[in-house]
Simulated assay, not measured.
Amino acid sequence: MYSDYFGIRENAFSITPDPRYLYMSERHREAFAHLLYGAVESGGFVQLTGEVGTGKTTVCRAFLDQLPEQVDVALLLNPPETPRELLLGIITELRIPLRTPEAPLKVLVDRLNAALLAGHAKGRRTVVIIDEAQNIRPEVLEQVRLLTNLETRTAKLLQLFLIGQPELREQLTRPSLRQVAQRITARYHLEPLSRAETEDYIRHRLTVAGCREGLFTTGAMKQVYQESEGIPRVINILCDRALLGAFAVDKAQVDGPMVRYAARQWRGAQRPRDGRRGLWRGAGIAAALLLLATALVYTYRDEYLDLPLLRTLLTPALAAPVHAPAAPAVAEPAAP
């Protein structure tokens, strides 16, 4: 919508994981190196984790683009729910002929093993990547572990990559999954971008899209970092909405207030930290009421004090749910 207005060829901040826009920060380079290491070394698992939106999928797609032609890839974007679904997903991705999907589990494993042996004899390697691996059930992870037993005398036939959110790390610390954790030969946790990297990230994406310098002021990029906490997906969303807002009010640059407005509209009427402030305010009022009641009881303990009445007055205030005050609604600027 605003591309022509700002002189860019395309949307620079699409949330689609386009490898052309891959910004290789130091953290992303390290994650990429771990994936390449796993593709070269045979056996075991490679584990890549990171918060939602930190760029795991984008790094993974760039990694796939770098794999040589003799590498076969099975990419499972949705975590399988059963061992059978896992095996069928791998067999389907590798285009291995299968007479019937209803075959017993052992038959599926044997069919996969035969195809892998045939590929190994031709000098081919096989990589299995499971995305959103934090949602894999323990029994499926155990089947994944058993797949690492498919091997020749000198080499493993499968290299497995587990890509997921931080919960995957926590899951693999369970005693029941220690055999799976012991098979992990390389692991890396992808952290959000720093402030300097966030600014470089914004400039990089604008440059790839063919944009001129100075579209975002220094204050705007600082505000983007504060609002996004360095998470690339959130950076994209905020920058896209801020550009739309600048276009709507006929401004040539995005400044800090525009970014704050975009963040407020994206999150809704109220920021999460405002809710916490309201919660503490309500808790403080409740504590003050309790202190007042204690003081009254202590001061007039020898005199008549209508305790049932006092309890009747205080109970509703203490039992009422605490709500943060709602932020005023802000109208979207009308597009010209």
Rank of each mutant, 00 (worst) to 15 (best):
L309G: 05
A248L: 06
I231A: 09
V46E: 00
L88T: 06
E139F: 09
A327S: 04
Q171I: 14
R27P: 05
E85A: 15
L35C: 15
V249M: 06
C60A: 14
E102K: 11
L108N: 08
D250W: 04
R187M: 06
D200A: 15
G284I: 05
T54A: 03
Q134L: 03
R281S: 02
L172W: 10
M24W: 14
A118F: 03
A121F: 05
A326C: 06
R124C: 08
R137A: 12
V140H: 04
Y300T: 05
L168V: 01
F6S: 07
L289P: 05
P17T: 14
E170K: 13
P308E: 13
G7N: 00
L146M: 03
A334H: 09
C60I: 13
R271Y: 13
M24G: 11
F6V: 06
S176N: 11
A62S: 11
E229A: 15
R195G: 02
A115T: 01
Q226R: 13
Y23D: 05
G275W: 11
L22S: 12
R27L: 07
Q143H: 09
R271W: 10
P316N: 00
D306V: 02
G164L: 08
L105F: 09
E132C: 04
L157H: 06
R264M: 07
A335R: 01
L112I: 03
T148F: 10
R264P: 05
P83E: 02
Q165K: 00
N78S: 11
L313N: 02
Q47E: 13
A246C: 03
R61W: 12
K251M: 12
F63T: 05
L158C: 08
L296C: 15
I90P: 01
Q270M: 02
A39Q: 14
L168E: 02
G219S: 00
G44P: 03
P272V: 10
L168K: 02
E199K: 11
T312S: 14
E191D: 07
R203A: 05
R276A: 10
Y304D: 03
V128F: 00
P336G: 04
P336S: 01
A74F: 04
E170C: 04
R301M: 01
L309P: 02
P325G: 13
N149G: 12
V180Q: 01
A62T: 07
L172T: 10
E132I: 06
Y300G: 04
A155N: 14
L292A: 07
T49N: 09
R27Y: 09
R281P: 00
R187Y: 07
R277P: 00
R124E: 14
E332H: 12
Y188N: 00
L292K: 02
P17L: 15
G53K: 08
E303H: 07
S25L: 12
L318M: 10
T299F: 11
V59N: 04
Q47S: 10
Y298E: 15
L289T: 06
D302N: 14
S3T: 14
L296T: 13
L318Y: 08
L291V: 09
E227S: 03
K122P: 09
I136R: 03
S228Y: 08
G275F: 12
E142R: 14
H28C: 01
R276L: 15
G282S: 00
A331Q: 04
E26K: 14
V297N: 11
V249H: 02
R9S: 11
D65E: 15
P325C: 10
I91S: 00
T16H: 14
F32D: 00
